[in-house]
Nucleic acid binder design. Structure first.
Lengths: 167, 167
DNA sequence: CTTGGAATGTCAACAAGACTGACGTAAACT
DNA sequence: AGTTTACGTCAGTCTTGTTGACATTCCAAG
């Protein structure tokens, strides 16, 4: 890559390879912090990050179908099913047959499931809150902008649907 | 959680649970986009994300020791070793016994290793560049601020050492 | 100088969680 | 009636994390 013709007076200093590399590494380290707290909680129980994700999105969209969850999480049904089965067996998630379309299963958190979700969420939100507070409102807006621009287009629409669904 | 006493005229609107939740989901979806392009390249070869990370940080700090890499990546030495072994066998990484301390192994990319690292890096940087461009310089600064605030303290120092080491 | 502990790295075995492929069932659509 | 869709499951593989056991090297205390 080297420098190219941009090296001179280009106003977009933040687009140098080195700046981009720092962004990449920041993303890597930050994601570790992002998952660290819930991971610690999950380690005690016999659950993993996959269970957390399922609980999170079921909590955010109660009654969602398996297929919908599949698309959001971006995993295969076999992979999701393994996780979902244990959550249902353990009484954290309830699966109700659809009324209109009986092929569908609608997913809900039980009280116990909601309690665990809240624990995990609280831990993750606490870190996010601290980071937001430390960085300030301007930074938060930029943070969100860059993240949205980094998503795949179809993921972005999933994300925006989720946002709109809850204001 | 509910609303609490902050609901009224609090200036920190971005600290509501819902705002935090959106930040969490943005992080989740964005990280998927972040890794998608390198993952596609790696899928063809018989390598995974772990190989990418190793190549990335060896490239950034040629001659680094296994132990140092361990701390940066945050995995066990056994886990790293498996990845490293295949990279060495395939001639992408060279491992030289330390001169002062013969227990240490110093790691370097071969030409072939550097070529693959560049391919992966180019793909990842391209997405990062597009996101930065779309979001604008202000946003980029905020993005970095929030990410740094989200890291674990020791990860942050690792990250800063890497930054300083290359300006 | 020797010996024992600490540090570094390797080998082996296992678990979580992703994947593909194949198959079965029930319901809906045409 | 036949096809498609939604979901579940069984079986097998791969990546990548884990622990445990072990070899080598260094260093420092006896």
């Amino acid at each position: 890559m080297a420098e190219g013709p941009n090296a001179q007076g280009e106003t977009l200093l933040y687009l140098t390879d080195e700046q981009l590399r720092q962004g990449i590494e920041a993303m890597f380290f930050a994601y570790r912090g992002f998952t660290a707290d819930p991971d610690r909680i999950l380690a005690g129980l016999s659950y993993g990050r996959a269970h957390h994700r399922a609980l999170h999105f079921i909590n955010g969209a109660p009654g969602t179908t398996v297929n919908n969850l599949l698309n959001i999480l971006g995993v295969t049904k076999q992979s999701l099913n393994r996780v979902l089965r244990t959550l249902i067996e353990d009484g954290l998630v309830e699966s109700r047959v659809g009324r209109n379309d009986k092929r569908e299963r609608h997913l809900y958190l039980t009280d116990e499931g909601a309690a665990l979700e809240r624990d995990l969420s609280d831990a993750q939100r606490a870190r996010m809150r601290a980071a937001y507070r430390q960085a300030g409102p301007e930074a938060v807006s930029g943070f969100r902008k860059v993240l949205e621009a980094m998503m795949d287009p179809d993921m972005l629409t999933s994300y925006q649907r989720l946002r709109e669904g809850r204001g």
